[in-house]
Amino acid sequence: MSATQIIFWFLSALALVSALMVLFSKNPVHSVLWLIAVFFAISGHYILLNAQFLAIVNLIVYAGAIMVLFLFVIMLMNLNKDMESQKNLWMKLAGTISGGCLLMILVSLVRQSPEIAGKIAEVKTGDIGLIGNLGKVLFNEYVVPFEISSVLFLSAMIGAIVIGKKD
């Protein structure tokens, strides 16, 4: 096993364990913290793929901003351990089945997709993830979708301000 492989397995295990802990934690604050650990592990995977920009932006946006807001809300709502309502058995069964169906569809999609069939991830090579190349692609080939999505963000921001206004 090379060092890259060891890091890959470590990060994968970390991501899976943390993701499971998000679900199994009784305390919502713990769940949020485990979710942050998942983001760190995924950023580690991005770095292995030499997508440094994606890795760092994942940390800034998800771990650094969105999860802070999650934590804000959960801390202010003061959800304590006893608050969690117990779902009945049928609900749990329905959840398991629908979740399993989704997993099956995703796996079959990935397996059958012609675009990724027979390709493997380029570990430690490839420079499309570096910031200069990414910027060139985004602002040349994909400039219209990029700008449209930024308008989408703007409308979301204005919407939030309008809803948040008191009068």
Partner: peptide
């Protein structure tokens, strides 16, 4: 000397908030 040095600084700063938030909570 990483390719995204300045962004790295921002990422670490934004993660630093958790020390304060977790401790306070």
């Amino acid at each position: 000397d990483i390719n995204v040095g300045v962004l790295y600084v921002f990422a670490v700063t934004s993660v630093g908030v958790y020390g304060i938030m977790i401790g306070g909570w």
